[in-house]
Simulated assay, not measured.
Amino acid sequence: MEIGLLSMTKGEAALFILAPEYAYGQRGCPPSIPPNTTILFKVEVLDFIDSEECDAFFELTYEQQERLPLEKLLKVAATEREFGNYFFYKQCFKIAKDRYKRALSILGRSSSSKAEQSQINASKLLLFLNLSLTYLKLEHPDRALKYGKLALEMDQGNAKALFRCGQACLHMREYSKSQDFLVRAQHIQPFNRDINNELKKLARKQLETFFRHRSCK
């Protein structure tokens, strides 16, 4: 099956006939598949991520990596980000975080060209946002805030970055900071449901804190 899959392209469907020794053998798979059964598999390749260029990149020396064209560098970083997204949606957040950081390490070089640096920063911005969300999932709001702020350094009007920072501060019970970030995000996207719901959650937390303090007195 693995050999067959390597011959397929994205979107392709194929039939594989596997002799018993390459399928379920003498035992079969009771109760569905009897012993010594030849198996017919129908396989469709919906999507895949090609890691060949990434693997080749990390086998290069630092000097060789630095000499690579920017286009190649951005492509490798984008592939690493795709891997991170894949693991994120599989809820493997630690692996996703490592993949996003690996992509950032690829984008570590600076460029004297403003156009090239702009391309690098655009790729970094996506990774900062992804890392901010991933650290929220990992319940590390302080790190989520760090990457949210890094995203804001590149784009101070980024509603998603402001939202992530607001979420992180809310988790850390820094309600005034959370409100500042969320209100700024709402100003940019007034009809964003996630932002508005987070502001409602913040209001409830502030109210609970107020009554808790009143009862303590």
Rank of each mutant, 00 (worst) to 15 (best):
6 L>C: 07
7 S>R: 13
10 K>C: 09
12 E>V: 01
12 E>Y: 07
13 A>V: 01
14 A>N: 05
17 I>G: 06
18 L>D: 08
18 L>T: 03
19 A>H: 09
20 P>R: 02
21 E>R: 14
22 Y>R: 14
22 Y>N: 12
23 A>W: 03
23 A>E: 09
23 A>K: 10
28 G>N: 05
28 G>H: 03
30 P>H: 09
31 P>M: 15
32 S>C: 06
33 I>P: 07
40 L>E: 08
41 F>Y: 12
42 K>R: 11
43 V>C: 03
49 I>Y: 06
50 D>G: 13
53 E>N: 14
56 A>F: 11
65 Q>I: 11
66 E>P: 00
67 R>E: 14
67 R>C: 01
71 E>T: 06
78 A>R: 12
78 A>T: 09
79 T>G: 07
81 R>H: 08
81 R>E: 13
83 F>W: 13
84 G>V: 06
85 N>D: 13
85 N>K: 12
85 N>F: 13
86 Y>K: 13
86 Y>T: 10
88 F>S: 10
92 C>Q: 15
92 C>E: 12
94 K>T: 05
99 R>P: 00
100 Y>D: 02
105 S>H: 07
108 G>C: 06
108 G>I: 01
109 R>H: 05
111 S>D: 11
111 S>M: 11
113 S>R: 04
119 Q>E: 12
119 Q>H: 08
121 N>D: 15
122 A>S: 13
123 S>T: 02
127 L>D: 08
127 L>K: 01
128 F>W: 12
129 L>F: 06
141 P>E: 12
148 G>Y: 01
149 K>Y: 03
152 L>Q: 07
157 G>Q: 09
163 F>C: 01
164 R>V: 00
165 C>Y: 02
165 C>H: 04
167 Q>A: 10
169 C>D: 12
172 M>K: 09
180 D>M: 14
182 L>Y: 02
191 F>W: 11
194 D>H: 10
194 D>W: 04
195 I>M: 10
197 N>G: 14
198 E>H: 09
201 K>L: 14
202 L>N: 02
203 A>W: 04
204 R>H: 10
205 K>S: 10
214 R>V: 10
215 S>N: 06
217 K>R: 11
